[in-house]
Amino acid sequence: MCGRYTLFTDKEYQDIRKIIRAVQEKGHEVKTGEIYPTNPAPILVWEGKETVPQAVKWGWPKFQGSGVLINARAETAEEKNLFRKSVYTRRCVVPTTGFYEWDQEKVKYRFILPHASTLYLAGLYNEFQGERRFLILTTEANTSVSFIHSRMPVIIFREMIDTWLEDTEKAVHMLHWQQPELHIATQ
């Protein structure tokens, strides 16, 4: 599960700074720092013939009771009525500077992609009462994460962003790719 992630804007996070600037130029604000469910955050979507950033709230409203759905299992998203159409037509990428997981003693760890300042996560979006919302796709954790948690986000490499957003056949295949090894941030 991915229940929090980071969106740092320090000088070394040029990709994130560029995405946030593009969203702000459209007149929208997004939260930075530690991102919680229901916070507005930038996502990347396919519009026309290009990838564009948008400010969108994290979490799909639950239809039974309060709260939000923040994750969907990549292994079964294609089969579930709630996610199927989004898998085929409303994919997004969630730019981050890492995500958090907690161990059984409630110690928080931030996972990052080695040698990259930005970690891109696979997501889906949908419209709810005229408001766009997103969630993050997760998969079984590989050995770099599994000692902390059994799930991890589906990682999209920077060079595969347009493919994930635009090419449905390849995107469905990417849901089942082996995930890259991650590191725990020392800061």
Rank of each mutant, 00 (worst) to 15 (best):
F63I: 07
F63K: 04
G65Y: 09
S66V: 02
S66E: 11
V68P: 04
I70C: 03
N71Y: 14
N71S: 08
R73M: 02
E75T: 12
E75N: 12
A77Y: 07
A77G: 11
E78F: 14
E79V: 08
L82R: 09
L82G: 02
F83N: 10
R84I: 02
S86G: 07
S86A: 15
V87A: 04
Y88L: 15
Y88M: 10
T89R: 15
C92D: 10
V93M: 03
P95E: 07
T96A: 06
T97Q: 02
T97P: 00
T97K: 02
G98A: 03
Q104Y: 06
Q104W: 02
K106I: 06
V107G: 01
V107S: 07
V107A: 13
Y109S: 01
Y109R: 01
R110A: 03
R110H: 00
F111M: 02
F111A: 03
I112N: 00
L113K: 13
L113G: 00
L113M: 10
L113T: 03
H115W: 02
A116Q: 14
A116H: 12
S117V: 00
S117T: 05
L119Q: 03
Y120M: 01
A122M: 06
G123F: 07
L124V: 09
L124D: 03
N126F: 01
N126Y: 09
N126P: 03
E127W: 12
F128Q: 09
F128V: 10
F128S: 05
F128W: 15
Q129R: 12
Q129A: 14
R132H: 04
F134S: 04
T138R: 05
T139S: 15
T139R: 11
T139I: 11
T139H: 13
E140I: 11
A141W: 02
T143P: 06
T143Q: 09
T143A: 14
V145T: 07
V145F: 02
V145Q: 06
I148L: 06
H149P: 08
H149K: 08
H149W: 09
H149S: 08
S150N: 14
S150Y: 10
S150M: 05
R151G: 05
R151C: 06
M152Y: 07
P153G: 10
P153R: 03
I155K: 08
I156D: 02
F157Q: 06
E159H: 15
D162N: 14
W164C: 10
D167Y: 11
D167P: 00
E169G: 07
E169Y: 11
K170A: 15
K170D: 00
H173V: 06
H173Q: 13
H173R: 11
M174H: 04
L175M: 13
L175H: 11
H176M: 04
Q178V: 12
Q179W: 10
Q179T: 01
P180D: 05
H183I: 00
I184Y: 05
I184D: 02
I184P: 02
